[in-house]
Simulated scan of single mutants.
Amino acid sequence: MTKSPVGRPRRSDSEQVPERGPITPQRILAAALEIVDRNGIDALSMRRLGKVLGRDPMTLYRHAPNKAALLDGVAESVFEQLDVDTDDGDWTIQLREVARNFRRLALDHPHAVPLMVTRPLETPLGLRPRGTLRPLEDILTLLTRAGFTATDALYIYRALFGFLYGHVLNELQELVERPDENEDLLRLGLHRLPIGEFPLLRSLAHVLASYDGAAELERGLDILIAGLTATLPDPDSPAPAAS
């Protein structure tokens, strides 16, 4: 029996005591997310979900017609936790909050990250679950209220989430070859790279070994927001006079 993050024993699927009560889409998605969090996307099936919920799997198809719909629902349930304050007067502060919250969700649900990052791209924008599009609409609202054009607001959204997707994938996949080794080159396996071909990469062994996801996120946001502020039109500046 494994331990949960707060120190209580965590039951495996076979040990789970099925919850009684009416089956709702919310209960189904909550149970599906728990399975994904515990065992990964491939472990999710109607059969296992029915076992966790104490129901015949066939009854679940009334709420989710297939596994694809179930995966979309799980992604939507995670994205719905990403709140955007569209009334925040400082768009840069709110974008930082969105970025921090997105990273937190990714770290809380690492097995669900592919559903958040890559799965939506497999579906045309207008056919994606509405909940996965809500952060986009809210950020567009935030930025247009701040004075940006809708087009510039879309550019900002794409730049922000392009950075966030890359960041969380990189942070979650940071691996070391020898965790107990004190020498950074050996810990990361960089000693295997010829020094003549990769002198700079080898020289960064200490920096790479001391990777701090939260600090790197803030540094990346500093660079991104500074670049956006410098290159995009100031929403508070008057529009140029028509010739």
Rank of each mutant, 00 (worst) to 15 (best):
M1G: 07
P5W: 12
P5V: 06
V6I: 13
V6M: 15
P9I: 06
S12Q: 13
D13A: 09
S14W: 12
S14E: 12
E15D: 05
V17H: 15
I23Y: 12
I28K: 08
A32T: 05
E34V: 04
I35Y: 04
D37E: 02
D37P: 01
R38F: 15
R38Y: 13
S45V: 00
S45M: 01
R47S: 12
R47H: 12
R48W: 01
G50Q: 04
K51Q: 05
K51R: 04
R55M: 01
M58W: 15
L60V: 06
R62H: 10
R62D: 01
A64I: 01
P65E: 06
N66P: 05
N66T: 02
N66V: 01
A68Q: 12
A69T: 05
L71K: 03
D72M: 05
G73L: 01
V74M: 08
A75L: 03
E76K: 07
S77D: 12
V78T: 05
V78F: 05
F79D: 03
L82N: 04
D88S: 14
G89Q: 14
T92F: 11
R96Y: 02
E97R: 08
V98N: 11
R104W: 10
D108L: 08
P114T: 03
L115I: 03
M116H: 06
M116A: 05
P120C: 07
L121W: 11
E122T: 09
P124C: 03
L125E: 13
G131F: 11
G131L: 02
R134Y: 09
I139W: 14
L140N: 15
T141R: 15
T141D: 14
L143N: 06
T144D: 04
A146W: 10
T151C: 09
L154R: 09
Y155H: 10
A159G: 13
L160T: 08
F161T: 04
F161P: 06
H167R: 10
E171R: 07
Q173L: 08
E174M: 14
E174F: 10
V176K: 09
E177V: 12
E183D: 11
L186K: 11
R187E: 01
R187T: 01
G189W: 14
G189K: 14
L190C: 01
L190A: 02
L190E: 00
R192C: 02
P194Y: 00
E197A: 02
E197C: 03
P199F: 00
L201A: 01
R202V: 00
S203D: 12
V207L: 10
V207E: 15
A209M: 09
S210L: 09
Y211G: 07
A214L: 09
A215F: 12
E216H: 15
E216W: 11
R219E: 03
R219W: 08
R219M: 08
D222T: 02
D222I: 00
D222N: 02
I223H: 12
I223E: 14
I223A: 09
L224A: 09
T229S: 10
A230I: 00
A230D: 03
A230C: 00
T231L: 05
L232W: 05
L232A: 07
L232N: 02
D234L: 10
D236L: 13
S237C: 08
S237N: 14
P240G: 06
A241Q: 15
A242E: 13
S243E: 06
